[in-house]
Design a binder for these strands. Structure first.
Lengths: 186, 186
DNA sequence: TGGTAAACGAACAGACTTGTCTATTTTATT
DNA sequence: AATAAAATAGACAAGTCTGTTCGTTTACCA
């Protein structure tokens, strides 16, 4: 295409990123995606063989974008404690930016059936990486209680989506800070 | 009805409780509900004016059933600490029983649009009650850190659904037990 | 036993779903 | 300038969705 700065395949993915996250996977139809992307239906099925395939590409793309943004926050500091607290600031930021729509992956998880193993695998993969992200920040031999950070981080995301409010992020962040002071996390 | 032990209205709700929870709200159609319930479509719309209305009744019913089961576990003990740890045993139990399908309310949350305010209100109401349930177990003047229990409880539910495994429940329970020992919670 | 209400099966409306196909135009490359 | 690939619009298939409206049958109660 000459007159469009972005290729159809990329426009489709951009639109899917926006609509799947905002409206949900089931609530978003192929027809809305192609009309919003300004693309022919045949073009969508040329690049993605099914809606599920597009769903998987959506999760893969989201994984990249989400982690890149998280790292913009955590890379500001060198100390483990500061890095981890910065992760909660990121949640604060993304809640504002995306109007408390919560986690793309957990939202997808609620919608899929047990047969859709490829989607589940993408979701599990993302969360495993997040869990390891926290684990790697802390000194190896002292990481026995790092999963509590992961668990508090996850509920901060879900509960702020639920209450459309930042208080769960603030509470979780404060709790993690307290656990550092108590040396439960080191 | 004479030959059916349960009334149509109740059969519809029973079926909705099962299918909405197992498959999700959008993935479950009215037609499957009426055929599984063995009820005419006209009967469904006689008792419930829309699918959304049935969805609200589903959440209301789930609220009753879920809390009743939770209390079966927590009422076994009198001490606050034991009561709270028993709540995590309940999670363990319901995960087995329902094959890691997670929280009905959070699953619904992921599916609804921001316009569906009645459904959102039902979900918020349930979670507010759960939050207060934990708060009321602990002595009034010492409840400053009880929300960490709520947050860990919530992520235990979500993460065990995600990984189809009980480890998040065990980790969260252990963390809460540790926080009691550290007197972060009293 | 007659009347009222509930439940029934089944058709129907109208809009929506994913996905396929065709015939045509545009774009990029050689 | 010619050729091959990409993208287009739009019709179409076959099925699903929610919700309404029939006329009929069943059940309960006075």
């Amino acid at each position: 295409m000459k007159h469009h700065p972005i290729l159809p395949k990329e426009r489709i993915l951009e639109t899917a990123l926006h609509l799947f996250h905002k409206q949900g996977y089931h609530a978003t139809g192929i027809n809305q995606i192609i009309s919003d992307a300004g693309v022919a239906k045949a073009s969508l099925y040329l690049h993605y063989k099914s809606k599920e395939e597009l769903g998987i590409e959506y999760l893969n793309a989201r994984q990249e974008i989400w982690f890149a943004q998280l790292k913009l926050f955590t890379d500001e500091s060198k100390k483990p404690k500061k890095k981890i607290l910065a992760a909660f600031d990121f949640l604060n930021f993304i809640n504002e930016k995306e109007s408390f729509r919560g986690c793309s992956f957990l939202n997808m998880l609620s919608e899929i059936q047990s047969e859709e193993t490829r989607l589940l695998a993408s979701i599990q993969n993302h969360k495993t990486q997040l869990r390891e992200f926290f684990r790697e920040i802390l000194p190896e031999e002292k990481g026995e209680h790092t999963d509590i950070i992961y668990l508090l981080f996850e509920s901060a995301m879900t509960e702020s989506q639920l209450f459309k409010n930042q208080w769960p992020v603030e509470k979780a962040k404060q709790a993690v800070a307290d656990l550092f002071k108590l040396k439960y996390i080191k």
